[in-house]
């Protein structure tokens, strides 16, 4: 399977490569392992779903790639972003990567946007932080970015504050901010959980479009099988800190190998009614 992915990509190497990652926390009595010996790859231009229920370690795995784990976390294993050995980086080096080479799209955009800063300024913030561009060039870029996430009337919108945006628009603004410096990898942590289904559908379509246009890799963390089915190329199924199964979407859904994956598929109610009515391909 791994070979198929690499071959199809024709790329030199994966964008993100995690090997034998273990994340543990000192509990009262013993060490609690939130992530156990996880290995995963994300290739250039790939949307990879990391799916699991609460406590599966999916978020911890993604956060360790951007080194935003709680301080108490003990991390073992290796994480490579392209050629960079992320775990050996200093905090200062990491800051230079975050928002530039790796971007993060959070679950709740409203909580993540500064309520007292205009949208235009916020979306341009990563550029302001990482590049020494002129104000007018930043402004031009922000205009481009907002247009690319389908926020129309850009000049007007840039002057507005987050609360004037709907939930879906706020999430688009967050995506625009993530795209500001053409990152190699975007980590999206359940970015549509707080949205209505129709808005969610638009955001998912947008993410796919962005991948097609920019060739950036996307790690998509979710607990929803349906989203993985529609959006992702490759899937890692996590349960209790371990990867129980990985594969391309077709395989995971049509021929799941792990009991846990099968249970998850059975437990997910389908909009097409009871499962036996679903036409099998």
């Amino acid at each position: 399977m791994q070979d198929i992915r690499k071959h199809a990509q024709g790329a030199a190497g994966p964008t993100l490569s995690i090997r034998n990652l273990t994340v543990s926390f000192a509990g009262r009595r013993q060490l609690v392992q939130a992530v156990k010996n996880v290995s995963l790859d994300i290739w250039p231009g790939e949307i990879v779903g990391i799916i699991g229920e609460s406590g599966s370690g999916k978020t911890m795995t993604a956060l360790s790639a951007i080194r935003l784990l709680p301080h108490k976390a003990q991390v073992e294993g290796t994480i490579h972003l392209g050629e960079r050995d992320v775990l050996s980086y200093t905090e200062k080096q990491m800051r230079a990567l975050r928002g530039d080479r790796i971007a993060m799209i959070p679950q709740d955009a409203m909580q993540s946007l500064n309520p007292s800063m205009r949208i235009g300024r916020q979306v341009g913030e990563p550029i302001e932080l990482h590049r020494k561009d002129s104000a007018s060039r930043i402004k031009t870029r922000v205009r481009e970015l907002l247009a690319s996430v389908k926020i129309g009337d850009t000049d007007q919108r840039m002057q507005e504050y987050p609360h004037q945006f709907s939930g879906g628009m706020q999430q688009r603004a967050m995506i625009a901010m993530g795209l500001a410096l053409d990152p190699e990898l975007i980590i999206a942590d359940e970015p549509t959980t707080a949205l209505d289904v129709t808005v969610q559908a638009e955001v998912l379509r947008l993410l796919r479009e962005i991948r097609d246009n920019t060739g950036t890799s996307i790690a998509f963390i979710t607990h929803e099988l349906g989203i993985v089915a529609e959006l992702c190329d490759w899937v890692y199924v996590m349960n209790k800190g371990e990867v129980v199964e990985q594969g391309c979407v077709d395989q995971i859904f049509n021929d799941p190998q792990a009991d846990y994956t099968r249970m998850l598929l059975d437990a997910t109610p389908s909009i097409h009614g009871p499962r036996d009515e679903v036409p099998n391909v």
């Binding site: 529609e230 979407v249 049509n254 097409h272």
Partner: peptide
């Protein structure tokens, strides 16, 4: 509304 729902069966029916 119905079309917007991401559905696991999507992979079975359309993606394969």
């Amino acid at each position: 509304l119905i079309a917007a729902v991401p559905d696991p069966a999507f992979a079975r029916r359309n993606r394969a």
